[in-house]
Design a protein around this nucleic acid. Sequence first.
DNA 1: ATAATTGCAAATGCTTTGCTTGTGA
DNA 2: TCACAAGCAAAGCATTTGCAATTAT
Lengths: 136, 136
Amino acid sequence: MSNLIENKCIKKGVRLTGQRKLVARVMSESNDHPDVDELHKRVSKIDSKISIATVYRTVKLFEEAGVVAKHDFKGTKARYEEVSEEHHDHLIDVNTGEIIEFVNEEIEKLQGKVAEKLGYKLVDHRLELYGSKIKK
Amino acid sequence: MSNLIENKCIKKGVRLTGQRKLVARVMSESNDHPDVDELHKRVSKIDSKISIATVYRTVKLFEEAGVVAKHDFKGTKARYEEVSEEHHDHLIDVNTGEIIEFVNEEIEKLQGKVAEKLGYKLVDHRLELYGSKIKK
DNA sequence: ATAATTGCAAATGCTTTGCTTGTGA
DNA sequence: TCACAAGCAAAGCATTTGCAATTAT
């Protein structure tokens, strides 16, 4: 539960500096989907002289190493989260910006079928639902 | 088949200038998903002094009027297409950038169900498949 | 030791905007 | 006529990058 990203980086041979460890730790401790500014704010509380350029470089590095995921939801800047063992998609509350994760095996399967039918092998996908809360 | 966007604009009360008519016409005649630069190139062939700022303003206007759709596919700039009566999603060829449109009612229905289950009314969604061609 | 990383500020790429002149209904 | 649109160049915003100083292995 503590610093999974750091462990994954070691496994992947990603060189770990003080700044990278810090970003890894902060991301591992986050349960939301922070953007780079927010991440920079959070790490700055611990190391006040870390540069935002370093945060940018680090999330990019982590993304390329496959340990964090980048999301470009509609109308917002890029947000990041630790990759989890089980794949999930997102529902974004259009009123609050809140992000809810969900898993739907059936949709997942259908996507592969659609691609296949079109003569393609599915290598990636993006599914985002945008909704407003139903009050009851 | 000729200039559907222009007609829709009239219906929606969007003021039509020479430049807007031209962008509308070029988009209606396009069967692909051009970005603003490409659109600007195409309209420039007809009116060489149209500004790219006008193209930007026009696609935004058309988008807000609901007559064209904007797509921010992964790793590319914004692309536009005329809205069609039947909704469709996209499969992007990761090798060539080619975009294939598809419709899948089943996935569509499941998305609504997922949202509902989470207590949300679906107001929008985004489904993109990224694939590589299967050679046979 | 030395190849890689950092911080800073400048540069980038896409998109928007202020302002003056031009124009559609 | 006259509120709105176009063209131009400048500004904005998120992100990337060149370079000199610093650091991890």
